[in-house]
Design a protein around this nucleic acid. Structure first.
Lengths: 348, 348
DNA sequence: ATGAAAGCGCTAACAC
DNA sequence: GTGTTAGCGCTTTCAT
């Protein structure tokens, strides 16, 4: 059979009190290390011993009911199944929570506002100490109104008015670093294979691309940015177009690793070797792609784990401060992950 | 600022009772639809009205303390960040839980037995109704002893002795279906690029491979199975070796999509087109790879979502039955996902 | 047909 | 130094 037939009655604070021969008050004081109580060392010992003996564990429900603190944090996201990123955010959040003895109550709404509302209510019903509201890709969101009624921080998302503390990747900085990686190797004609979606990442990464060019005194050439729709197929098209030009770029900055995946395919089709004939740099560090491509893809990692931690840490501060801290908007850096897809440009 | 400054005091059952002019007992009876109580329709109405008016929501903590049922399920896994599969299992579990008003308390142990123990204890402290113990790839596990003390089911894992109910993919059936997909198109020399790890999946998929051959009366040729270590690089090696043979196979069954990824690279290197010169079929349906490869990879999907649901449904049954159901070991089918990497073999 | 009261396990104000 | 007691918000037995 699976699991217990007999739910072993676990020891309560009463049991400990009885066993130790003191009142529950004293037990509570001792076990919680309440300051300013003078309790005999000997008493402390006996109580601690009894507690250990009985394998006493405080009932968190009862505790929460009494203290209005459940040490439970709600984590709601628009989607969780579709990207491997989710796991890293959750892990970061969970580990930060664990450090203060808190646990994560996980919920995914699939983007349905009604469901989102009900889920948030379910969290409130369980008296969560606060909520992390996460998006699976950097977005501007409008969370349910209820979110204003309790401590909350936004993860990989922000609202138009920035009423909440939030953390998102430094897309501009990441893109600039990516393009500078190419520039510093000597590339001067650098294509940008981007996505058609109008989201923070497309705008910011384009801005970063332009900034990097400017730093190196390279003029921006709009013909070198090619837009397509998402996935590898789009990247294949964009890159094919760019690499078929007579004055083809020697380096390609791809909006995502998926697009870079397509760019590899385009290069192969055209008989161009990576990185000898064309250097390619991606964005996202989707290891399933970046580490398995041949040669390995140099790319910018998204700081999902760090963002998850930041969100919870910040939420905790907010909770502990009684909730009147100013909202802060945090940018976290995107680290460069060097593999083997970038080299010097071919000698002309 | 983020979140509430003022924690709005929410209405309690007392408030509803007062507002409606009845006792809390009656309110509880009405709101919980307790059977066998004769309460005037009119009374019911007034109470329901008052509850709605005050936006009353029962405090789940108090409820749980009293009823010993928290409508909370623990979900502990050995890892969550490293695979995109985690999300699907969690989603399946979460949705099944939501259907009965339960929520998931998520925890990932990183495989550390000590941590695992503490995490499980944290769940017990919070009085979870039961626990789903998940592995991120099909494994034989030895969960902490504590797991025996409460309702639990294993997800994508089982123990050596099968003491718990568990659900894992039907690896044998999946592998057989994959190889039959090749056989049915006319392939007779089919290579198997597998992994060196000694885990349930390697053994089972090899068995499925052999079963399929047998069904079609094709003799098993050990030279056609090539073992390597994991990732794409291993697949590249295996496939290169197999495809360089004078009597090279016309079809390749790859242990994972990552290995298939490497096989694509090997085929390209050898100037072999997929699927015209060699058909390739994978396993796992890692969409980041399978959907982005060119041509799209035909592969066997792993039933993560369904397994997640099954685990929670089964756990719920166990909880509701008071916990003396026999343990059941469930196999869930791996659906074939057809894309474009399989065709008839080339005419010799 | 409705209500009083006990109690789930804990903390904390207060008393001694 | 230690103990009594009220109460967090709810369900449920037992009265009436």
């Amino acid at each position: 059979m699976g699991g217990a037939t007999v739910q072993v009655r676990t020891a309560t604070i009463r049991d400990v009190a009885d066993a130790a021969g003191f009142s529950v008050t004293t037990v509570s004081h001792v076990l919680n290390d309440v300051q300013g109580k003078r309790i005999a060392e000997n008493t402390r010992d006996r109580i601690r011993r009894a507690a250990a003996e009985l394998q006493y564990r405080p009932n968190r429900l009862a505790q929460g009911l009494r203290t209005q603190r459940t040490h439970t944090i709600g984590f709601v996201s628009d989607s969780i199944a579709t990207t491997p990123f989710a796991g890293q955010m959750i892990l970061g959040a969970q580990e930060a929570a664990a450090e203060v003895g808190s646990l994560l109550l996980l919920l995914s709404s699939g983007g349905d506002p009604d469901l989102e509302d009900r889920e948030l209510q379910a969290l409130v019903d369980r008296q969560v100490d606060g909520v992390v509201y996460a998006a699976m890709y950097h977005r501007v969101v409008t969370p349910p109104a209820k979110l204003h009624d309790l401590p909350a921080v936004l993860l990989d998302a922000r609202t138009a008015a920035n009423e909440f503390s939030s953390v998102v990747p430094d897309e501009v900085g990441g893109a600039r670093a990516a393009v500078e990686e190419l520039l510093s190797r000597g590339h001067r004609r650098i294509g940008f294979c981007t996505d058609a979606a109008d989201i923070p990442a497309t705008r910011a990464r384009l801005a970063g691309y332009r900034q990097a060019l400017e730093v190196y005194g390279v003029e921006f050439d709009p013909d070198l940015v090619s837009t397509s729709h998402g996935e590898a197929a789009g990247g294949f098209q964009s890159a094919s177009a760019l690499l078929s030009r007579p004055d083809r770029p020697t380096g390609l900055f791809c909006f995502t690793d998926r697009i870079a995946f397509g760019a590899y395919q385009a290069a192969a089709e055209l008989g161009l070797a990576v990185p000898q004939d064309v250097s390619i740099i991606g964005f996202d560090d989707q290891e399933l792609i970046s580490a398995n491509l041949r040669p390995g893809l140099t790319t910018m990692a998204l700081p999902h784990y760090a963002m998850g931690r930041w969100a919870v840490d910040t939420l905790l501060e907010q909770i502990n401060s009684g909730g009147n801290l100013p909202a802060v908007q945090q940018l976290l850096p995107c680290p460069l992950v060097r593999r083997a897809s970038v080299s010097s440009p071919p000698r002309a």
